[in-house]
Design a protein around this nucleic acid. Structure first.
Length: 487
RNA sequence: GGCGGCGUAGCCAAGUGGUAAGGCCGGAGUCUGCAAAACUCCUAUGCGUCGGUUCAAUUCCGACCGCCGCCUCCA
């Protein structure tokens, strides 16, 4: 099956063929670290994470680079407000970025380059552009000469004249053309600066991504992801800078993530209607937040509201219940599933295969995570049905198929990050917990024998307070520590 | 003005030229001391409106209505 990606550049679904077979070079636009990131930002980061995971699932070797913009007007302003150094401010939010994104299960990129650590690469790229007449210096500032690049506007599908007509561009009289943008900004008093051939100053916003993508990946990369708002001007400018500098295509597949909305409006820093991931993870389980963020296809707007998060929490609980129920079969050996006699087992095996095929077919269509969730939950229902018809003395055949169901389910859920396998609790502490629980359950069982329901219910209720859930069934009482109990 | 997106059950959301995945909530049952979980059944003759093409459209075409976004920093 072939993966297809919607390429913003062509506005079409295209079959994904990486430049180098089996290898994918991927760049994800990361945060500007002047504040915590909100769940709208998280949506984009999460999409990158899932694209990467799915490509790995398809056996590609992925190199993912995600930048950290650690010098910028907003950082300077915010640092001034707080009376601290830009570096301190940036470092604080870099740390927060890693902490919060890791809570959401977003894996670190292979490289997280910072703008301030690539000043020399940036300067040399700017110099190349100047040498090629694609940039010019005025009073220590360097501007990109948009007119020099005939294809300017090809990503955002804008005509040069339209860009002028809109004319919300701040007019700087010194620029040759209002559309020209900063490559290097001369520093004003009190601003941080780096030495350059033109002035003591700092890089413009767009140039860092070109420089760092080329340094850590290549002059042509396969996939570049970012929020929809970055199409213009950020990514348009990246193309202009990079392609003039190298004479090569910069990015082969551009992916842009639609906005997360709140109350029907875009969640944005400038709208003051955002919810920090930092706060959301206090309230909802990471898997629930992920489930919510991927419950719509990434190119469709998604509206945030507490109800949706609650729905996702419930959905994730259903999934966890199913996987937990499969847990006991996890380590059953054997793939030898030829010649099954048990018709039910055969049917479940077919369900497993169907689920995997459907999952892949759906994800192959431009990472349709919402559809993928559908296939997973359909399968959950089938597994539950099978389990309901299977008692504790399941046959070897059934145990083996259940084991396979477990592994398949965990694998696809891991691609989406909506299920995290718990570390095997094997320390002394866990063993003690186990024994204590056995003791408690034994006492409770005695109470139940006597029909002393008050005592039995008291034990159950108080354990629940400790996030331990008891379930009485014919086969006895089971317990488990609730995951994602925040929701 | 230019470019783009969205409108599918109470809510969220897939999807297809041939008759609507999945989740949540709700209702009725099974199981259970009760609960929880799970299971069973029920919940859109209809996919914004109006036209057109077609044997057949929610799916294609056109018009319209409503909502949103980008064109300026924002994922």
């Amino acid at each position: 099956m072939a993966l297809k990606i919607y390429n913003s550049l062509t506005r079409q679904l295209e079959e994904f063929v990486p430049l180098h077979e089996g290898k994918v070079l991927m760049y994800s636009c990361g945060p500007t670290v002047y504040d915590y990131f909100h769940i709208g930002n998280a949506r984009t980061f999460l999409v990158s994470d899932i694209v990467r995971r799915y490509l790995e699932y398809k056996n590609y070797t992925v190199t993912l680079v995600q930048n950290l913009t650690d010098i910028d007007d907003k950082i300077i302003n915010r640092a001034n407000e707080q009376g601290i150094d830009c570096c301190q401010l940036a470092q604080k939010y870099v740390d927060a970025y890693f902490e919060d994104s890791s809570k959401l299960g977003i894996r670190s990129a292979d490289v997280h380059p910072r703008a301030t650590e690539h000043i020399s690469e940036i300067i040399s790229l700017i110099q190349t552009l100047i040498d090629k007449q694609a940039a010019y210096e005025i009073d220590g500032d360097v501007y990109y000469r948009v007119n020099h690049f005939a294809e300017y506007g090809k990503l955002s599908h804008r005509k040069p004249e339209d860009l002028l007509a809109g004319a919300r561009v701040e007019v700087d009289e010194r620029k040759e053309d209002p559309r020209d943008f900063d490559l290097w900004k001369k520093s004003k008093a009190g601003e941080p600066w780096w030495d350059s051939p033109w002035s003591k100053g700092r890089p413009g916003w767009h140039i860092e991504c070109s420089a760092m993508a080329m340094k850590h990946l290549d002059e042509t990369i396969d996939i570049h992801t970012g929020g929809h708002d970055l199409i213009f001007p950020h990514h348009e400018n990246e193309i202009a800078q990079s392609e003039v500098a190298t004479g090569k295509a910069f990015v082969r597949y551009w992916m842009h993530v639609a906005f997360l909305q709140i109350d029907g409006r875009r969640m944005g820093k400038s709208e003051s209607n955002f919810i920090f991931v930092h706060d959301a993870v206090q309230q909802y389980a990471p898997e629930a937040i992920r489930h919510f963020l991927i419950s719509a296809q990434y190119r469709h707007p998604l509206d945030y509201n507490p109800t949706s998060l609650k729905e996702s929490s419930s959905a994730v609980r259903r999934l966890n219940n199913c996987i937990d129920a499969l847990g006991p079969y996890r380590d059953v050996a054997g793939d030898a599933l030829e010649g099954l006699n048990d018709a039910e087992a055969v049917r479940l095996l077919e369900s497993i295969n169907t689920m995997r095929d459907d999952f892949e077919a759906t994800m192959d269509e431009d990472f349709n995570t919402a559809g993928a969730l559908g296939t997973i939950f359909k399968f959950v229902g089938e597994v539950n049905q099978f389990l309901a018809a299977t008692d504790n003395t399941a046959s070897e055949e059934r145990r083996s198929v259940l084991s396979q169901a477990y592994r398949s389910l965990v694998e696809v859920c891991s691609v989406l990050g909506i299920y995290t396998e718990e570390e095997v609790a094997s320390d002394a502490h866990a063993a003690l917990t186990e024994e204590l629980m056995n003791l408690i359950l034994e006492v409770r069982e005695d109470a139940r024998e006597r029909k002393d329901w008050d005592t039995a219910d008291k034990i159950r209720d108080q354990l629940e307070q400790l996030n331990i859930e008891l379930q009485d069934s014919r086969g006895g009482t089971t317990w488990r520590i609730l995951k994602g109990a925040k929701g």
